[in-house]
């Protein structure tokens, strides 16, 4: 096991920010910590990075107990949410700042920094002020500043949350690319389920300081272990079937039809067009409000008030109690 967190807790007075956090990470794995704000995910990587001393538990990295090691001695590096680029230094100075403490000569450091900057296409911006860069560029500089140290674990604290949606998708791809090229182990904190599902080898869903579920993206999306995980990972219909058992369906698992017999009937209440998909809100005969997604090209174009059959395409497993 490369990185291991053993029953790690952080308690502030009466408030437990993180409780009994237990996780094993393989070398080269990309783990996403996913959860709502205040769930303890940033505290967790803060403890791994050495900024927050844990109240309890051990952190083992590469067979070495690093729990008591100060941040500057740890072979980890953090990319901060707001980048924390030193505003009084140029791009290259920021990038090579950490190399100084690794005992690398100034000339060598500069060469290495440039090489790394080239990886994200920013080598020409070397001597610019960091404050003059765009958000996306700053983000990449922060990433490179950490990567250049070749840390054993790279910690990313919501690194894309300050960027606009389009840029986010591009940078997400870039991070994934860098990860597969360098094979570096990453812990990535986010509250965006789409980001977590798209990036991670494994997702750790957190809530109120505890791990709710851990697993590969597809598995936790399809087999969420409880209602919290279900609704946090995406929209869901909670449906009571004829036998009175609760079942869960994702909107894309519902199909509306007029010429086939479905599970039940319903009335279209609202239609929302959002580009690639069209979402129908349907009130079933038993009074439940259901959402159904149709791909735009296959949109049957129902009107509000239309009566439709609701077909359940494929069932998501019910939550394990």
């Amino acid at each position: 096991m490369f990185l291991e967190l053993r029953m790690v807790s952080k308690v502030y007075g009466a408030f437990a920010a993180v409780q009994n956090f237990d996780l094993k990470v393989n070398k080269g794995e990309l783990i996403c910590l996913l959860g709502p704000s205040g769930c303890g995910k940033s505290t967790t990587i803060g403890m791994i990075g050495g900024f927050i001393p844990p109240t309890q538990g051990r952190i083992i990295l590469d067979s070495r107990d690093i729990t008591e090691l100060p941040a500057n001695m740890r072979p980890t590096s953090t990319v901060f949410q707001n980048y924390a680029l030193f505003p009084h230094m140029s791009v290259i100075k920021n990038v090579v700042y950490g190399l100084k403490f690794a005992g690398i000569s100034r000339k060598k450091a500069r060469r290495k920094g440039k090489k790394y900057l080239d990886m994200v296409g920013l080598a020409e911006l070397c001597d610019h002020k960091v404050t003059r860069l765009s958000g996306g560029e700053q983000q990449r500089v922060a990433l490179i500043r950490s990567l250049v140290l070749e840390p054993k674990v790279l910690l990313l604290d919501e690194p894309l949350s300050n960027l606009d949606a389009k840029l986010r998708v591009g940078l997400r791809r870039e991070i994934k690319q860098i990860q597969s090229r360098t094979g570096i182990t990453m812990l990535y904190v986010t509250h965006d389920q789409e980001e977590a599902l798209g990036l991670a080898d494994r997702v750790v869903v957190m809530n109120e300081g505890r791990i709710e579920q851990t697993g590969p993206p597809e598995e936790i999306y399809k087999n969420p272990c409880n209602e919290f995980v279900t609704s946090f990972l995406g929209r869901a219909n909670f449906f009571k079937n004829k036998n009175g058992v609760h079942e869960i369906f994702r909107p894309e698992e519902l199909r509306l039809s007029t010429n086939e017999k479905g599970e039940c009937r319903g009335k279209v209440i609202q239609r929302q067009f959002s580009g690639n998909i069209v979402t129908y809100f349907v009130r079933s005969e038993s009074g439940e409000l259901l959402e159904a997604d149709m791909l735009s090209p296959h949109d049957p174009n129902y009107d509000i008030g239309d009566s439709v059959e609701i077909v359940f395409e494929k069932k998501t497993s019910p939550p394990n109690p």
């Binding site: 900024f51 941040a71 001695m73 980890t76 924390a84 700042y97 100084k100 403490f101 690794a102």
Partner: peptide, 18 residues
């Protein structure tokens, strides 16, 4: 000033003096 400036410097290996 973002307190993370100092945290980032520590993270990159700087001691208190640096």
């Amino acid at each position: 000033c973002d307190p993370n400036f100092e945290a980032a410097a520590r993270d990159l290996g700087a001691g208190e003096k640096n």
